[in-house]
Design a protein around this nucleic acid. Structure first.
Lengths: 251, 251
DNA sequence: ACTGCGCATTTGTATTGACAATTAAGGCGG
DNA sequence: CCGCCTTAATTGTCAATACAAATGCGCAGT
């Protein structure tokens, strides 16, 4: 145990308490002794002990509240695989130099078919923006995209970088909206007749459908996007990385 | 400003420094004054000031190192959308009551075609497990799955819950492997002839292909899984939630 | 000119002491 | 018997100080 002796006290204490929690000395829902007691127990000062408790708290193992004490709320540090993006662009990683071309815009009222497709109430009003996405100078589009935004956000088409940025980020920027949640759904479909010519792909040929739903701070869906990617033109790819809670250890 | 006066000093100081960083008083890469100086500046003690700096550090705005001081490494608290799973089962959210049926196992050496498909070196040895996944008592399979694991993990087929748990988690459990990273790739394909009968789907009809690659702690891929879902039998779905770094504010 | 070592600077860790804020629990009065 | 209010237990906050550890920089020697 050569490294043990050089570890800071508060780390040693945290490690010990964590082990005790995992081994069941302090079970789920149990209350740890009060700070003063623990400090005496470990023969240390209260601030040092508090630092140890703060570590466990950051790891999500305990919850600390005045008068109640420190309660064990988890017995193991959750290790999760996570996929985090800082920009919606990373969600659909298109090559750098793609751009959209707006082919039509209009106001629509969701009929039964559209309502079912978008998972919204029938009769809901949307502003629809239809676009084609191209890679570089290619004349074969990557995909057909129908974007449905709330009518009050129709002005988004006037954004100065409208054909380059994701629409939802334009809305965030122009209207102070916040993306609270994004839902992604991927499925296999057939190219609809109305898109075949524009996509330069045979009607009824296989395609990858991607539907993205964006929910704002008020819990309401403010945008839904449906993309149709003809066979072979696109692969959806992402990675999840291992991540313990409360990042922490040095280096 | 009724709440301001009751905020703890260290919070006030952290807020002030955060604002200064965002407004450019301390730009990206700039060094904050040393702790002693800042303590004097804010007319407080070093421990209190250190608590404020610890907050900013946890938020990822600054990095603190002995002798170097506190360096600004970000001007804004990154807000990310993230998708976190605690079990690989959540990755492909099949209905609760699905199970696999192993149809064949064998050792294979990757030829050029397989190497290209799996993104591995030609000649690589794998143990291949071929399975069909069924929902409940249905006799129509949800998908055909070829799982390729390192030869030393071939014993995974003897796991007591082999047909219920994800293979990679069985490997984690039986061989003390760790999933460091998972890569997911989704694409549209055609049903290969050899799978058509078993899948009860026409050869060459559209399908959704899902390839998952698991990387272990040594950076080596220890498992690759290729699933083929016939049209209409499966949708890939997941959600990303907004998450500010350093969770924290109370309640 | 380059390399290695010492040193001074800066953050990290730990102790002691005191008071404030929060809140669960018990007591008191209607 | 119920509800409000007091009370006390527990964590939260803050200060002053001391020493340890890490490391960039300059100086000296080759």
């Amino acid at each position: 145990m050569p490294s043990e002796k050089t570890l800071p006290r508060h780390t040693q204490i945290a490690d010990r308490l964590r082990a005790d929690i995992q081994s069941g000395v302090y079970g789920l829902g149990a209350r740890l002794p009060i700070e003063a007691e623990l400090a005496t127990l470990f023969d240390t000062s209260r601030p040092t002990l508090r630092q140890a408790l703060a570590t466990l708290s950051a790891e999500g193992l305990i919850v600390r509240r005045p008068r109640t004490g420190s309660v064990v709320v988890a017995t193991h540090v959750p290790v999760v695989l996570s996929h985090a993006v800082t920009s919606v662009n990373e969600l659909l990683d298109y090559p750098r130099d793609t751009h959209r071309k707006v082919t039509a815009t209009r106001y629509v009222k969701a009929d039964d078919a559209l309502a079912q497709q978008l998972h919204c109430a029938a009769g809901k009003e949307w502003f629809q923006i239809t676009t084609l996405r191209y890679a570089g100078k290619s004349t074969v589009p990557l995909c057909w995209t129908d974007t449905y935004v709330l009518p009050q956000y129709a002005g988004v088409t006037k954004h100065r970088r409208h054909t380059l940025m994701p629409v939802c980020e334009q809305i965030v920027e122009m209207f102070d909206e916040v993306i609270e949640q994004a839902d992604i759904e991927i499925f296999v479909m057939r190219i609809p007749k109305r898109m075949a010519a524009a996509l330069k792909a045979p009607a009824d040929s296989p395609a990858m459908g991607v539907m993205r739903t964006y929910t704002g701070s008020d819990g309401e869906v403010f945008q839904t996007t449906v993309s149709v990617h003809p066979e072979e033109r696109y692969r959806y790819r992402f990675e999840l990385k291992r991540e313990a809670r409360a990042a922490g250890r040095k280096r």
